[in-house]
Amino acid sequence: MAVVLALLLAGPLWMLASGEVDRGGHWSSASRAPAGLAPSPAEASEAVVQLYAARAWGWRGAFGVHTWIATRDAGAEAWRMHHVLSWRRPSLVSRSTATPDRAWYGSAPTLHADYRGEAAAAMIGPIEAAVAAYPAPSTYRAWPGPNSNTFIAWLIREVDGLEAALPVTAVGKDYLLEGPLAEAPGGLGVTASLVGLLGVTLGRDEGLELNLLGLSLGIDPRRPALKLPGIGRLGMAPAVKGRGEG
């Protein structure tokens, strides 16, 4: 057990020691600048659905990311952003915003799904319905879940046509709310999990991931990469679902 813990914690400890995760300053002064990933209505007037991930604030960022989803109707100016927050009750928050791609308290987001046009328009209603039906809207546990990543993984599974291979650092994505088996978020595969502490995911877009004590590691043979706890993906970049890359 000591060896397993040492291997699992090596990545997060390296992230802290190397300065890859910023632990200085105060959250209120951290950058919230847009990353330029969300198209303006002038750039894309059609419906858009995007899914983001960014390192969590402070020392938690050494372990994992925060994920959220944003939608915009065709011709609309504002986006609708959905995510789960640790400091709010209920934890599930939906709000309008002009900048869904803002940095997450100093951490620039990465894009993991980008659906547009008719495909996006067909998803927006079901996304809103799934958000309203989320079974744990007032519950948040950073480890092993349910948390922000649990919510996004659950939402992906609920909405037909919405797929995204979440980062291996999305701690809590393997916490299943409705039994020990579920479809892999990438769309073709399966996740088996015991309360988010022990599990496995085998999927077309995830490859093979092992979940040990809530931290995941694995390998992606389709887009060759090694996946490590804390550190994340080493190798070929993941596909952005919705762009025809998956």
Rank of each mutant, 00 (worst) to 15 (best):
V4H: 05
L5R: 10
L7E: 09
L8Q: 06
G19H: 05
D22I: 10
G25E: 01
H26G: 14
S31K: 01
P39H: 11
A44F: 03
A44P: 09
V49S: 07
L51A: 03
Y52F: 15
Y52N: 13
R55F: 07
R55C: 12
W57T: 14
A62M: 09
A62H: 08
G64S: 15
H66P: 07
I69K: 05
D73R: 09
E77M: 14
A78L: 06
H83C: 10
V84P: 07
L85T: 15
W87Y: 15
R88M: 12
S96F: 13
S96V: 06
T99E: 15
R102P: 01
R102M: 10
R102A: 14
H112I: 01
Y115C: 05
Y115F: 04
A121D: 07
E128Y: 03
A129E: 12
A130K: 02
V131T: 08
P135T: 03
A142K: 05
W143S: 15
F151A: 03
F151E: 11
I152E: 09
W154V: 01
W154D: 08
I156N: 11
L166F: 01
P167K: 09
V168N: 11
V168M: 11
V168D: 05
G172L: 09
K173P: 10
D174Q: 13
G179H: 06
P180V: 04
E183Y: 09
A184Q: 10
G186F: 03
V190S: 00
V190F: 00
A192Y: 06
G199T: 00
L202A: 11
D205A: 03
G207A: 11
L208C: 13
L215A: 13
G218S: 02
P221V: 02
L226N: 04
K227S: 07
K227T: 14
G230M: 06
I231G: 07
G235T: 06
P238R: 11
P238V: 12
R243L: 15
